[in-house]
């Protein structure tokens, strides 16, 4: 399985900036979302009605298709934990304001989680497989697994992404993660997953796994590496997210400190930030010699343990 394009809109200068991994800094606490001119991607009429998450997702999708030089993906698969939460909140506000009067359906009809994947299909006039996974911190990993299954079933190119917007009045992520200190951000990262290696191929996706409600993180990681005939010491870089020291200690029992990098220092916290971490990994692998992690990075493990008990693993090679 190959990654033939990648595109991210985030709080960092990632969009249309290949090689960004060589000079990315730790996230500034006052950072905001860095957006491209959406006018380049979405007609004005449609753009006005779209929330952040839809605009980010469409721009990243179109950027990916352009990079890979394909008109239509065989499938569109999106992972989003909170979906269109701003539209959801807006419709709740309208219900409160309307009491018994008539309500405008505008924000309601674009409030469902699959509005993101649906709007991408609508803008491309794509009639293929269209799926939305919404398993909080594992939404993106499950989308990738779905993408791999789709390719195993005969598809050539699949558009897979993770996207979440920032909206903290209807969901309290700090309370859920029991951490008041986290830097809440948002973003979208999309990829073209392909059956065939291409001259544009930036990395190979060896395996992805998603585990929920597990009590043995270290054993699960060791099994995953065993299944892929890879030793812990062969991993050049472990991009990880954890929510507490105990989880970090679990990782330290398998990996050495110099192998490990906390990707939330770059991405900030949102439930699909592992998709940004994967793009970070892809960028490092495709820019040999320029990485801050040295010039010999060949194997990267993205280890997403953001919610205790939930574990996402993605193994990438160049």
């Amino acid at each position: 399985m190959y990654i033939n394009a990648a595109s991210t809109i985030s709080h960092q200068p990632t969009f249309r900036n290949a090689g960004f991994s060589s000079n990315l800094r730790k996230l500034d606490p006052s950072s905001g979302l860095i957006t491209p001119d959406y006018g380049d991607f979405i007609p004005a009429m449609e753009r006005r009605r779209m929330s952040h998450v839809q605009k980010m997702a469409i721009a990243c999708s179109l950027d990916c298709l352009q990079q890979a030089g394909i008109q239509q993906p065989d499938a569109i698969i999106v992972g989003t934990s909170m979906g269109c939460s701003i539209n959801t909140k807006n419709f709740l506000d309208k219900i409160l304001a309307a009491t018994n009067g008539p309500l405008s359906p505008t924000s309601f009809i674009v409030s469902t989680h699959n509005t993101i994947a649906g709007q991408i299909a609508l803008s491309l006039k794509n009639h293929g497989y269209n799926m939305t996974h919404t398993q909080n911190s594992l939404s993106f990993e499950q989308s990738l697994i779905d993408g791999i299954l789709t390719i195993e079933n005969g598809a050539q190119n699949v558009l897979v992404g993770g996207a979440d917007e920032e909206e903290d009045t209807i969901y309290n992520m700090r309370a859920r993660l029991k951490n008041e200190e986290i830097h809440l951000t948002c973003g979208a990262s999309f990829f073209i997953l392909s059956k065939n290696q291409d001259s544009i191929t930036s990395a190979r996706l060896v395996d992805v796994a998603s585990f929920g409600l597990i009590d043995n993180t270290t054993g699960t990681i060791k099994n995953f590496l065993d299944t892929n005939n890879t030793l812990a010491e062969e991993i050049d870089l472990v991009l990880f997210a954890v929510s507490d020291q105990e989880n970090k200690n679990d990782l330290k029992s398998i990996f050495q400190p110099w192998q490990m990098f906390d990707y939330q220092e770059i991405t900030g916290t949102y439930y699909t930030n592992s998709s940004f971490a994967m793009h970070y990994a892809v960028d490092i692998l495709s820019n040999k010699g320029h990485s801050i992690f040295g010039d010999k990075v060949k194997n990267i493990l993205v280890c997403n343990n953001l919610i205790p008990g939930n574990l996402g693993l993605m193994l990438l090679k160049n």
Binding site: N114, A117, M131, T132, H133, Q135, G212, L213
Partner: peptide, 8 residues
């Protein structure tokens, strides 16, 4: 293990 949610 695999615990997933779909929303379409």
């Amino acid at each position: 293990g695999y615990i997933g949610t779909i929303s379409t």
